[in-house]
Design a protein around this nucleic acid. Sequence first.
DNA 1: AGCACGCCGACT
DNA 2: GTCGGCGTGCTC
Length: 804
Amino acid sequence: MNIASVIVDVPAKQTDKPFDYEIPEKWIGAIVPGMRVIVPFGPRRVQGFVIGLKDHSEFESLREIQEPMDLVPVLNSELLGLGNWLTEKTLSFKISAYQAMLPAALKAKYNKKVKLAQGASIEDLPESLRHYFEGDKAIGWEDAVKGGLVPVLQKQAAAGTLEVLYEVRERLGKKHIKYIVPLLPPEGLKAKYEEVSGRAAKQKELLEFFIGNPEPIEAKKLTNELGYSQSAVKSLVDRGCLGEKELEVYRDPYEDRHFPKTAPLKLTAAQKAAISPVKAAISEGRHEVFLLYGVTGSGKTEIYLQSIQDVIEKGKEAIVLVPEISLTPQMVERFKGRFGAEVAVLHSGLSAGEKYDEWRKIQRREVKVAVGARSAIFAPFENLGIIIIDEEHETSYKQEDMPRYHARDAAIERGRNHACPIILGSATPSLESFARAQKGVYSLLSLPDRMNNQPMPEVAIIDMREEMRSGNRSMFSRKLFEKIEDRLGKKEQIVLFLNKRGHSSFVMCRDCGYVMGCPHCDISLTYHRRNEQMKCHYCGYETHVPLQCPECLSDHIRYFGTGTQKVEEELGKLLPHARVVRMDMDTTGRKGSHERLLKEFSEGRADILLGTQMIAKGLDFPNITLVGVLSADTMLHIPDFRSAEKTFQLLTQVSGRAGRHELPGEVVIQTYTPEHYSIELAGSQNYDVFYQREMMSRKVHKYPPFYYLALVTVSHGQLMKAVSVTEQITAFLRARVSEDAVVLGPVASPIPRINDRYRYQCLVKYKREPSLPENLKQVIDRYQKEEGASGLQVSVDINPFLLM
DNA sequence: AGCACGCCGACT
DNA sequence: GTCGGCGTGCTC
C-alpha cells in the first residue's frame, strides 16, 4: 500500500479524477485516506486529497507525494463517500465537493515566486536584478508582474540562474499560547531553591510559586498578572528548572459569554406525542425522516433539545442546522444553555480561524453537538444519532454555487449512512416536504397549538390602495400608525418588517418614466443613502445620484419604493420620541453588530425594531405585541414559481414574532394585493388551505413537488452566441428525454444580463429521467471547455431554488 | 487551472 | 527571416 490515489486541487473537467502518487518510504502508514497532501502536478505543487491507497498503478512512473498536510485525516471514510455522492447529485467536481465539506481555513493558498537557482550565484545575474535576490531573497510572482519583470526573469530562468518556486500554504495556523511549566517535581524544585544564590530573590519567589502550583501556567499571566519578571523566568528556564511550552488553544467566540444552565422543560401532551416516535427511532437506531410541523411558538426547540439529550445519552452525536445562526443568537443560547461545552457553533459570523477551531472540536470528539448554518451538515462526526434541520423551508439551505447541494438532501444521505433519524422542523413546511409527508415518505409530527395555550396573534390585512384613495400617502396605514402609538404608550415593543434594504429601491423620472438601470446588467440601480450613490446589486457598479433625468433632462426625478432607511427617517419625523433600532445588511455588516442591536432591543432600550428578512425568524421577546409588515407584496412580484410560497412563509414567520408570551399579539399586514391567496391565507394562518391551493397551481404548471427541475444557464458577451448555444442545448436535451418531461427554452433569464454577459436558459421539468444526469454531464463536457476561449459559460443546477 | 508545445501573421 | 498570437492537450 505505497501508492495513493489523490484528487488534486484543480477544478477542471480534465483533472476531475484520481491521480496516483508514490508514498515516500518514511510516510508509508502515516499517509492514509482523507488526508490532505502536497503533490507535484506538472510544474506546480498543489493540494490534494488522498482518497485511497493501493499497491499497483496502471501508470509507469509515479511521482512522489511531497508531504502530508495533516497528521490525522480531515475527512473520514463516510465523508469521502458523501463527497462522491455530492459530485454525482450536483454534477460538480470532486475537489469542489471535498472543499465544501471543510472549513475555509483548510483550503490551500498558492504562492508562486522566483529565487536564485540552486548552485547559481548572484554574480550570474545582470546588475539590475541582483538586489531582488540578495541574501536568499525571493520575489513574489505578483510583484514581478506588477514591476514588468516577468520577461527578464523568464530569460534568467531559462538560462538556469533563477528558478520558479511553487508553494502550498495553509490559510492560517492554529493559535498557540506560550506556557511555562516546571520541569522538575516539587521536591526537585525545592532542591534547586537551595542552590539558587541568595541574591536572586526573584527567582526564589518564582520557584516557591511553582512548588505550590506545579501546573503549567500561561507565560503572560505569570508576568502580567502575577508580577514575576521575564528575566527571572528566563534564568530559571536556562537553569533547566522551568520549560517553555507552546500549547494549542482554541479561539472561542463565546469565551466571555456565560450561558445559564437550563434543565429540560416539562413537555405538553402534544409535544410528548410528537417526540415519542423520534425517541423510538433514536433508541432503535433507525433511519427515518420526520417532518415536525408546528406553528410558531409551539415549542419545537424543546423537542430538538430533548431528542438530542437522548442521543447524547446513547453516546452519539447530533447536528442541528439553523438558517443563518448569527441571526438567531437566541438559538445558540438555548443549545449552549442546555448542553454547555458539548456544543460547537459554526456560522458565518465567525472568523475563518474561529470556525476552524469550532470544527476541530468536532473532529477531536470534544463536543457532541454541532449547531450551524448549511455547511455544518458536513460536521465530521463519526457516530451521528440525529440530524435536525430547523426552519426546513428556508431557501438558504440550498447552496447557490458549486457544489449546488441542498442541506436537506445531504442530511438525509448522512442519516442513511448512520442509520439515524432526521427531524425537519417548520411552521410553514416547504411544499416538497409537506407533500412527502402526505405521501408517507416522511413521518408527519404536528404541534398545532402554541405553548401555554397562547392564542395565535390577531392579523389585520390593510388594503393600501384604499389608504391611497382616502388620501393617506404615507407608508403607514392609519390603523398601523394608531397601533404603534398605542404600544408606545403602553411601553410594549413593536417589530416593523420591510423586505428591502437601502433607502429607496430605484430612481424614476416622473415626466418620461425613465428608470435608472445598470449599464452592465439588466436591472435597476438601487439608491443608497449612506454615500448618496446608485448601486447595482449584481455587479457592484456604482454611480452618483442624477439631478436631472438623463433622457428628457427633466428635474422631476424621484426615488421610488421604500427602504428601511427611509422608514427610519419617516418614523423619526412622525414619532420623534420612539427609539428605533434598524437592522438590515447595512447596519449589521460588521461582526457582532447583529447581536448588539438585538441586545439593545431585548433589554428594552428601544421601542421599535425595524428590519428586513433577517428579523423574520428566531426572535422571541416577551414584550413584542405588535408586528407590522409594511408591504407584503414586494416578494409576490418576483418572477419565480415559489413567490407565493415564499410570501406566505415570510408573512407567517413574521406574524409569529408577536405575542409569544403572556401578552397577546397583533399583526398588521399592509398590501396592495389583499386578495392574493398567499396574503389572505397568511392572514388567517391557514397553512393547510394554502398548501392545497398552491399544490393545485404547481400541478397545473408542472412545477415541484410534482416535477423535478434542472436548469441550464448559458451566458456570453454576445447575445446571439448565448441564444444559439442555448438553442443547441435545448434541442439536445429535448431529443433525449421521455415524453413526460418538458424542456423549456431558450428563454432569457429573469436577469437577462449581468456584468455585460447575456444570460439565456433552458429549463427541464421531469418526473423520472434516469439518463438526464448523464445528458447534462455531456452538455457540460461539450460546452465548458469552450469557456476560456470564447467566454462562454454553461452552468447546470439540478433542483434550482432561484430560476435566475 | 496553469503551462508547454505548436502552427500561422506583421515586424525588429 | 523571427517574435508572438492563442488553439490543443497534458498533468499521476
